[in-house]
Amino acid sequence: MGLVTPDYGLLFWMVLTFLVVLYILKKFAWGPILSSLKEREDSIEEALESAQKAREEMGKLQADNEKILAEARNERSKMLKEAKELQQKMIEEAKQKAAKEADKMIESARRAIENEKEAAIGEMKENIASLSVLIAEKILKKQLDDPKKQKELMDQYLKDIKLN
């Protein structure tokens, strides 16, 4: 039957044409099409990958930032604590120093007062002595105004001497 009998003339043209078309399409159509498709897919994949990478990078950066911030916070609190301690110490020291100084000052003041007092007492004694001498002199002067009394005293003295 003609329908199912292959015709070699047509077969000849078909094989020839098909091979030529296959070659031409491979070179000028499928090659460029497939390579551009691949290129595009690769570039999309690359873009997605780099986006993912950037996201990760950002996450890392954020974590880093957090860490740095935490560290800074720590540092600050530590510094504050240290400053407070230092201040406390300084105040304490100042207080102690002040107290010591005050003690010293009080001591020296006391000593000065003591000296002054002693000096004053000495002076007072001297004054009192000279005053009493003066008074005695004045009294004596006044008592021995009268020669009678002088005589009497002398007698007294003499009497005392005799006694000795």
Binding site: W13, V21, A29, W30
Partner: peptide, 22 residues
């Protein structure tokens, strides 16, 4: 055979222009 020539010409024209579009 002529139909074959016509169809492959059409095929080449279509896909070469598609390739050029790429």
């Amino acid at each position: 055979v002529l139909s074959l020539f016509f169809s492959v010409s059409l095929l080449m024209w279509i896909f070469i222009s598609v390739a050029n579009a790429y």
